[in-house]
């Protein structure tokens, strides 16, 4: 933009005049302040702490409270890379990290495979069914996350509904261990994330001009080819955003693995190891 400075007949620009064009950024300020205060600054602080020398103590306040002589688990004002060296060379930490990433990828894969068809179905549904389906998708989000996870825990328990059904149908004579497995951890995490994924993909599909689909059919494409050549490629950008949201959420997985997963990290680690070495 080129602004030509003109002589305004001796009129001097005041501070307010000069600041006026920036007024629109005021709209952003509450969000920016929140992010700064509760996220960016603590994160930077944490980053700084990660370069402190360790005191060797393992926990909070063990060996005396922070601030006291010899207290806390780090030595303030020091600089070292030891913590990073330890993290990247320690098998335990590495396996936890690899598990976290692997778990996130698994959850993302399952979520995307389930979410896209569901979103497409909602997109193509007649108006009333569409509203009902969207409500069903959002409904779990109205309950507390812990309620959801504990409910799932009960459902998948050895004497839970799922196992009773399995035995009733006769698939197995004794209950199958479902809870505290990778399976139950994945199911619960997928259930927690998938509403967002579905909503984002559904919204993306709704931004497509419906006459594109008609045009494709009119030009001679079958419904499947229309989906494959027109609808799907055009939904890719929005679907990638949904994918990103899902991955980030799954990476932050904490509640599901800890409440429904296997507490013995050793088993998890070895299971994950053997899986990885096969591929």
């Amino acid at each position: 933009m080129t602004v030509v400075e003109t002589d305004l007949g001796g009129y001097q620009k005041t501070v307010v005049d000069r600041l006026a064009p920036y007024a629109k950024y005021l709209l952003l300020s509450p969000m920016i302040l929140l992010m700064l205060g509760f996220f960016v600054i603590p994160l930077l602080w944490l980053l700084r702490i990660s370069f402190y020398e360790s005191r060797g103590a393992s926990g909070f306040g063990i060996g005396g409270a922070a601030g006291q002589e010899g207290g806390g688990f780090y030595v303030e004002g020091t600089w070292t890379l030891d913590n990073y060296v330890r993290f990247f060379t320690d098998d335990y930490f590495m396996s936890v990290m690899m598990f976290t990433i692997g778990f996130a990828l698994l959850v993302t894969l399952v979520t995307m495979i389930l979410a896209y068809p569901m979103a497409y179905y909602i997109y193509r549904a007649p108006p009333k069914l569409k509203t009902a389906l969207i409500l069903i998708v959002i409904l779990p989000k109205l309950s507390n996350m812990l309620v959801l996870v504990y409910g799932l825990q009960m459902l998948l328990a050895n004497n839970g509904l799922v196992n009773e059904l399995i035995m009733l149908v006769g698939v197995s004579d004794e209950p199958i261990k479902l809870v505290y497995t990778l399976f139950s951890a994945t199911v619960s995490k997928v259930l927690l994330v998938i509403p967002y994924t579905i909503l984002v993909i559904t919204a993306t599909l709704h931004t497509l001009d419906p006459s594109l689909r008609e045009a494709s059919r009119g030009l001679g494409a079958s419904p499947f080819k229309t989906f494959w050549l027109v609808t799907f490629p055009l939904s890719v950008p929005g679907t990638l955003i949904a994918l990103l949201i899902t991955i980030v959420w799954a990476l932050g997985a904490f509640v599901s693995p800890s409440l429904l997963g296997n507490p013995e990290t050793q088993t998890l680690r070895s299971r994950f190891r053997s899986r990885r070495s096969r591929t």
Binding site: D209, A215, S216, G218, G220
Partner: peptide, 16 residues
């Protein structure tokens, strides 16, 4: 419609 061999030009053009 995909079997009709008709050419429709939409008001929005509907180009891909």
């Amino acid at each position: 419609l995909e079997k009709r061999n008709i050419g429709m030009v939409f008001q929005s053009y509907a180009l891909f």
